[in-house]
């Protein structure tokens, strides 16, 4: 037993606070929008130039001039705003966005993140990821704990080119939740049915275990 993608997204949504401005990456991070707690105001930023991103449109209501950063059709809300790319990244780089949730290829125990490039393979580009991790106040990673070949993604050191150095605050994987802070990498939550031993077997990074789950 381990967390499903939906459960990982649900867990990530617990990082939301009332009034937060949030940027969600493509893939599982996008799903986190489905779990905004009732009664909480969370405003979604789309780095191509929109604050207050609404849900996908009903069939027939789609507008080619209204897309998100994943180039999917979306809708606007009553309090939405549009702006150019320089203003958008001014928001991001200037520290006005509270939370960024992204995927990852590798995360190191010191918070280094690699999620844009595999040398020798065709590189698609970093898009806005380097700006997001450099500028947003809190960076949360959602990822499968291991790669498809089973190799660990939470490492002592990244060996892929970095997106940012020392930028990750929290990692949510199918195994559980890891915090990165002053005391290094700490396993703070375990997914249902996962043991500390199993977490260690599936992880290359050194980590300590929070008192609540060490027992």
């Amino acid at each position: 037993m381990a967390w499903t993608r939906e459960q990982m997204a649900q867990r990530a949504a617990r990082e939301f606070r009332d009034g937060y401005y949030v940027n969600l990456g493509i893939g599982i991070p996008t799903m986190v929008a489905n779990y905004i707690p009732e009664g909480m105001t969370v405003t979604l930023q789309s780095e191509n130039g929109m604050l207050g991103m609404g849900p996908f449109p009903y069939p027939g209501d789609e507008d080619p001039d209204l897309i998100n950063a994943g180039k999917q059709t979306i809708t606007e809300l009553a309090d939405s705003s549009y702006f150019d790319s320089a203003t958008s990244f001014g928001m991001i780089r200037g520290g006005h966005i509270d939370l960024s949730i992204l995927g990852a290829m590798q995360v190191a125990q010191n918070g280094d993140l690699a999620n844009w490039m595999i040398p020798g393979k065709m590189v698609k580009g970093m898009g806005g990821a380097m700006d997001l991790v450099a500028g947003v106040k809190q960076v949360v990673i959602i990822m499968d704990h291991n790669a498809r070949d089973g190799s660990p993604k939470l490492l002592k050191e990244c060996n892929l080119p970095l997106t940012g150095a020392g930028v990750v605050d929290l990692v949510i994987s199918d195994v559980g939740v890891f915090e990165i802070g002053g005391s290094g990498l700490v396993l703070t939550e375990l997914a249902d049915g996962v043991t500390v031993d199993e977490a260690r077997k599936r992880t290359d990074a050194d980590f300590s275990v929070a008192a609540e789950i060490a027992a």
Binding site: E47, D84, S85, A86, S88, F89, G90, I92, R93, V123, G125, M126, G127, G128, A129, M130, D131, G135
Partner: peptide, 10 residues
């Protein structure tokens, strides 16, 4: 030449 999106905009 890859530029981070925000760097390109700026």
């Amino acid at each position: 030449e890859f530029n981070p999106q925000g760097t390109l905009a700026e």
